[in-house]
């Protein structure tokens, strides 16, 4: 059996649709770790260096959950998207960290557009490694990509449409692996939604469109995902009531990009930093008062 293990962390939130569709089309069995829970979190904290960010610790937890349940582990390395669009060093480092702590063979590919290494080449390599023919892979890749693009487009469309809502609108400036993680962002999102807030997500914008908008805040930031995030903020600035910056402790790129933007925007904002020790009570006080304030301003 060639069962592939997909840790539900970091990369998963960017590539899940492509990966699952690709493996489905190739008829390769795979297992995705469950939503983060306390057990996975504990596992992650135990196997991490104390200076890693919470999102990395969560990732390590998923990895250790999976390691005895699959043959291969899927861990890409993402370096850059050309034109001053670096990723966080953790995106580069994870493959090496993982290969040092587990014995499973790793399915790896590089995204390094400066050296002409892209997703297509990466997935083809993985297909070959799993013993599939070029024809099969070509078909699977085409299918996976189309599916992904359609879904992504629909998500962006819905997100942008929410900007026109009459309700109180808050932009969540955050990375998808934090926003949608069960132990990091989920409670915050749930709380806001139960208070009838329309949420707009910074990761659901077309990167092509918003990436260059980030230059209006700063020409010096070179982290791709942060540029996308603050570009999304620039895009929606006039249409939203407030911003919530959500990051995991201690995120390096966020601490530069978000802090910089906070000083430049003319909108109410809330800066939330999640650590594994945080109870929800302190979070709730901040969210409740933020919503109260926006409600007063909205009237």
């Amino acid at each position: 059996m060639n069962k592939v293990g997909i840790p539900r962390g970091i990369f998963y939130y960017y590539y899940k649709d492509i990966w699952t569709n690709f493996f489905d089309a190739l008829d390769v069995p795979y297992i995705i770790s469950p939503k983060t829970n306390k057990k996975i979190m504990k596992l992650g904290v135990k196997h991490s260096n104390d200076e890693m960010c919470l999102s990395m610790k969560v990732y390590m937890g998923h990895l250790f959950y999976l390691k005895d349940k699959c043959d291969y582990l899927l861990v890409p390395r993402i370096d850059n998207f050309k034109c001053n669009n670096q990723t966080c060093t953790n995106f580069l480092a994870l493959y090496d960290i993982v290969s040092n702590v587990v014995d499973n063979p790793i399915l790896n590919y590089n995204i390094d557009l400066e050296k002409n290494k892209n997703l297509k080449k990466g997935l083809y390599d993985i297909g070959f490694k799993l013993g599939k023919s070029k024809k099969e892979i070509k078909k699977a890749y085409k299918y996976a990509l189309k599916e992904y693009k359609d879904r992504r487009k629909a998500g962006i469309k819905k997100n942008i449409k929410n900007l026109e809502s009459e309700k109180i609108k808050i932009l969540i400036v955050s990375h998808p692996y934090n926003t949608y993680d069960e132990m990091i962002g989920a409670d915050i999102i749930k709380y806001l939604e139960s208070n009838d807030i329309k949420l707009i997500y910074s990761d659901k914008f077309s990167s092509k469109e918003v990436n260059k908008l980030s230059l209006k805040y700063s020409k010096d930031i070179y982290f791709k995902y942060n540029k996308d995030n603050i570009g999304a903020l620039k895009y929606s600035e006039d249409k939203i009531d407030g911003v919530i910056f959500l990051s995991s402790f201690p995120c390096g790129p966020d601490s530069i990009a978000n802090e910089l933007v906070m000083r430049k925007i003319n909108l109410p904002y809330l800066n939330l930093i999640v650590d594994d020790s945080s109870g929800f009570a302190g979070m709730e006080t901040r969210l409740e008062s933020f919503i109260d304030m926006l409600g007063e301003r909205h009237e």
Binding site: L270, I273, D275, S278, R286, D292, R297
Partner: peptide, 9 residues
């Protein structure tokens, strides 16, 4: 209230 901040961690 137009804006507020609280200590974080």
């Amino acid at each position: 209230i137009t804006n507020y901040a609280m200590n974080t961690l």
